[in-house]
């Protein structure tokens, strides 16, 4: 699959080029008007963030118990994408909130739990980057704990505060809005899969280069010993 990531990204880009037309033609939402259009980017990227977090958690568990390098590469790629899509969510969210609720940020259940999920995966990337040798394992533990933590964050913040529209908004969407929404969701999904496989291919290439270097070093060592 990894060979087709270029094609996936090109198709996703094409869909992103068409999406504004569809979004512009979708009907205005009765109370929020034009501002609501950001929904077509905000919600799909939030869905991709949760999907990426889930992929990262599962792949990390597989890596921790089976030690398969491919699972680790998948986890690393998905962890980075969680942070990337999380950034989109955390930028588009406050923009929308400013117009819809009059404030940039609300300590509401969904906002707070998305922010925390994003922070967990930033911590995941930090530990992978700065943890030194063996940091893949530390990262794997962080991803597993982070995934297990999502329901707790959600429940506790939910009891603490709630303002955000519930998820039932999406299935109840009127048909003219549903079309563009599904279109953007598919575009984001293709972009996610494309980036994920591109990142995995890059990581695999890096591992191969490292392996080649190591073998070359060992070869030098042998030669030197031979000369002595």
């Amino acid at each position: 699959m990894s060979r087709y990531y270029g094609a996936l990204i090109v198709v996703a880009m094409g869909m992103f080029a068409v999406a504004p037309v569809l979004v512009a033609n979708a009907p205005y939402e009765s109370t929020m008007g034009l501002v609501q259009k950001i929904f077509y980017y905000h919600v799909p990227s939030a869905m991709m963030m949760f999907l990426a977090a889930f992929v990262c958690g599962i792949a990390s568990a597989v890596y921790l118990f089976r030690k398969t390098p491919a699972a680790d590469r998948l986890a690393a790629a998905a962890g980075e994408l969680t942070v990337v899509f999380g950034m989109i969510v955390l930028v588009t969210g406050p923009l929308w909130a400013r117009k819809a609720w009059g404030v940039w940020w609300q300590w509401d259940a969904r906002l707070t739990s998305s922010l925390l999920l994003w922070m967990i995966f930033v911590a995941y990337l930090l530990v992978r980057k700065y943890g030194g040798p063996g940091s893949e394992k530390l990262g794997a533990a962080m991803a597993i704990f982070g995934m297990a933590n999502v329901p707790f964050v959600y429940v506790s913040v939910n009891i603490w505060r709630t303002l955000h529209p519930r998820t039932s908004v999406v299935p109840d969407l009127p048909a003219p809005m549903m079309g563009p929404f599904l279109f953007s969701a598919v575009a984001f999904l293709l972009l996610f899969v494309g980036l994920l496989s591109a990142r995995m291919a890059l990581e695999r290439a890096r591992a191969t280069v490292e392996q080649v270097y190591r073998e070359a070093d060992e070869g030098d060592e042998w030669e030197r010993r031979g000369e002595e």
Partner: peptide, 10 residues
């Protein structure tokens, strides 16, 4: 703390 605080927020 970087790993522990986000997990122990609940």
């Amino acid at each position: 703390p970087v790993l522990l605080y986000p997990i122990t927020i609940p």
